[in-house]
């Protein structure tokens, strides 16, 4: 595997291998010295065109725990902000000897473009409304840790699917790993032709009793002004996850959220902070899963 641009690039065996490696990495993270020499002398560039401290720090920690040299190339205040093209930036990274570029970008497909222009590996850390593969992998890892398996589970993905890169990556990966996926939200925010093998539902209360995993998506309040829904109040009444809805879920079912949350909008504090919520684990697991991805792309494991 040269790049990680989309979870569509992963077959079940490769995805499972990443999750297995992540499990080993997690045991390293639990040790007193949290470092492996695996990527010593290799350079990983974090190229972030969007503010996302959480994701950047997670990748940075992952690379450093593998002993890689990390360069943070933030688009803010750099030559990029002054209008340098992605292609010119790619040449700069090339000259710096980047072995891997972790890219976060507001335009869908930017990592695919970048992959044409650098010789190193490109790792998609979220592109526009397209994909966020490592988020889907850490979600899969979290599901497997909590539920013991993924195959055969029913996962409901709830909210603004249309604009969600997390949803796109999860739909593809969960399918590959044998889960059944239902997309839930207002019809304005759930594309019906995203994937032939997923179900689409508009009634959250009808789906919840059948779900093993409920994955809540962040809904931006700005969608309101574009008439995707009438008001934040109405949205949370129809699609927000509160205590009452949590109790409609099977006893074993878990609640996930990729963060950052809009508490009170798509999820209530009661749910977010409940033991059924995996939100904190997701963040922790993010580092192990990203270590596994970097290891697989750069370590020459395959």
């Amino acid at each position: 595997m040269k790049h990680l641009l989309s979870t569509a690039d992963l077959d079940a065996a490769t995805a499972t291998e990443i999750l297995d490696i992540a499990t080993e990495m997690a045991s390293v993270s639990g040790r007193e010295i949290k470092k492996l020499p695996t990527l010593r002398g290799r350079t990983v560039v974090n190229l972030f065109y969007e503010d996302s401290t959480r994701t950047r720090i997670s990748f940075e920690a992952a690379a450093k725990r593998l002993s890689a040299d990390v360069i943070n190339f933030s688009a803010k205040g750099s030559s990029v902000e002054k209008g340098e093209s992605l292609k010119d930036t790619a040449w700069t990274l090339q000259a710096m000897g980047a072995d891997a570029v972790v890219i976060r970008h507001p335009a869908s497909g930017a990592p695919h473009r970048l992959a044409n222009w650098v010789t190193g590996s490109v790792l998609n850390a979220g592109d526009g409304t397209h994909e966020h593969p490592t988020q889907a992998l850490l979600d899969a890892y979290t599901i497997r840790s909590r539920m013991g398996r993924i195959d055969g589970l029913h996962v409901a993905i709830v909210g603004d699917v249309l604009h969600s890169r997390v949803a796109r990556s999860n739909v593809l990966l969960l399918n590959t790993l044998g889960a059944k996926v239902t997309l839930v939200g207002p019809p304005t925010l759930v594309p019906t032709d995203l994937n032939a093998s997923v179900q689409v539902a508009y009634d959250l209360d009808a789906v919840l009793p059948q779900a093993d995993v409920v994955m809540m998506l962040r809904v931006q309040k700005e969608r309101m002004t574009d008439s995707y829904f009438p008001s934040a109040r109405e949205y949370s009444r129809r699609y927000g996850l509160d205590g009452a809805r949590l109790r409609r879920m099977p006893a074993h079912a878990i609640v996930m959220h990729p963060g950052p949350m809009n508490r009170g909008m798509e999820i209530t504090p009661e749910v977010a902070d409940s033991p059924r919520s995996t939100i904190v684990e997701q963040v922790t697991n993010g580092v192990s899963v990203r270590m596994a991805c970097l290891y697989l792309l750069l370590g020459g494991a395959r």
């Binding site: 497909g109 526009g128 397209h130 249309l162 032709d193 995203l194």
Partner: peptide, 15 residues
């Protein structure tokens, strides 16, 4: 808008 609205645009995350 970036491309034809359909299954491909839904998949690619392009408006």
């Amino acid at each position: 808008a970036q491309m034809h609205e359909g299954d491909v645009s839904a998949r690619l995350g392009l408006t």
